[in-house]
Amino acid sequence: MKIRTLAGSVALVALTGMATWADPAEDKLVINGEIEMITHTEKAPDYIEGLSEQYSGWHFRDADTRDMERDDFDNPGMLAVDAAKEVWNTADGTEGKSCASCHGEPESLRGVRAVMPKFNEAKGEMYTLEMYINDCRTERMGAEAWGWNDADMVNMTALISYVSRGIPMNVAIDGPAAPYWEKGKEMYYTRYGQLELSCANCHEDNYGNYIRADHLSQGQINGFPTYRLKNARLNSIHSRFKGCIRDTRAETFKEGSPEFIALEVYVASRGNGLSVEGPSVRN
């Protein structure tokens, strides 16, 4: 693959004058000069047969975009974190409680994002971060559930990621998680839509290459929610999945669907070992 990539990128520069290199950028991410991020590992977990090493999507963005993530003052996703901090402390619902009433400071949830999705023993099903948040709202606060892509929801996932930044992703794939993981894996290799493209076609076989203007990453989700310069807002994991499946000329699944929950378990496990990076900056 590497030889083709190199030859390709030389031709690309010659053709379009684009000063880009096709391989992931060799660079190191330290946020605010203090949080050391693991954005690259020499070795993917053994259960991810198709990847030898792992890269965060950060390595595939251009230098300006990478720089925006180095400093919280430059990261537009931090506005969402600030907004969520306010909501965190605001009582809502029939019980008159806020998140802070039960959890104290947001930092008390440090580490939570790194193990999501997680099997919820009490409920007997796989839970994403969004589902835990909504359970707190409906069952403990007597408040209304947020929609998957509501600003309040995405902002809150940004805050909960933010307090875990730097911690390596460590999603469980065994025990009760195993059937979800298997289903997600099957989906990852399914060639959906009229273009018949699987996640693996783009993000395993071709990361580092260009598909039209897009520099393909490994499609990791350690950076979510991601602030995308393209739509100028924070994006949830499931809305990204939806966009990628739509781009294969397929009928997508819905945010929060059993399919996307299973896919999230599997894709998260492909990034086990990479730091929680949300809210990250992408283009």
Partner: peptide, 30 residues
Amino acid sequence: IMPSFYKTGPYIRPGDGFTGKAPKGDLPPL
């Protein structure tokens, strides 16, 4: 990975162009 441009299926969850929705009828080839 190259798509098949003169084919009408079978596809897995074909969509109506790039709308993300199911197609209304049979899909023409690409």
